[in-house]
Nucleic acid binder design. Structure first.
Lengths: 105, 105
DNA sequence: GCTCTGTTTCGACAATTGTCGAAATATCAG
DNA sequence: CTGATATTTCGACAATTGTCGAAACAGAGC
């Protein structure tokens, strides 16, 4: 993980609509959700949703799998783990960091 | 932490320059760094730096403390902890989540 | 009060973003 | 091949962003 990539991932989560998409997928869990299911839940134009999904897929935070004509979308946990790891990295010199406390216990 | 606030924080970190500023402050640790020190290390116009710092301060990820004419900037760890907590929230239904593994161990 | 150093505010500018509806594409069913 | 459904691509548009240099402001020392 480098700065550029982390920034792209953070930026892709840093939009209310995209964060909502991502969290909806997280809640959907392993089963994932088709694009249409996301659209129902979130209520935006299909073209807008497609646009945002593309960015989430491009940054690796979401994966897609074709199943006939429908595209199943899933949150890609390893990418989020890596991103959180990058953010927590070097942040533990001082007290008060959840990650450092968890690591120490 | 709600979606809007999390998105604003993520967005503020989702710019290469701002992420670099933030990580520089994280490395500086408790002592923090004056705005001028950040400018030296990062090499951008003072006005640009001020602009970015303002956004990081507005979202609560960075705090500032006046010391005579110089402004000391520090990474505000609790905000990052809360953000990471929000991201990790509900992400642990499936295996492979670093946070869930840490919590379980 | 001046002057110096550190920081912010003020325009300005090109570039990017977020959103939409309409049209195009893709995949399967018959 | 035709039709039906799911999704993406294509323009278009206003709004926001990132950057800069110049000017303004703030606090400390002479």
């Amino acid at each position: 993980m480098n700065l550029e990539q982390a920034a792209r991932q953070l930026e892709s989560l840093g939009n209310p609509t995209r964060l909502q998409i991502y969290r909806t997928l997280v809640r959907a869990g392993h089963a994932g959700l088709p694009v249409g299911g996301l659209q129902e839940r979130i209520g935006i134009a299909a073209s807008t949703l497609s646009h945002h999904l593309k960015r989430l897929v491009d940054t690796g935070l979401v994966t897609q799998e074709r199943h006939a004509t429908t595209l199943i979308c899933r949150a890609h946990y390893p990418a989020m783990d890596a991103l959180i790891g990058y953010l927590a990295d070097e942040c533990c010199a001082d007290a008060g960091c959840v990650a450092s406390e968890a690591a120490a216990s």
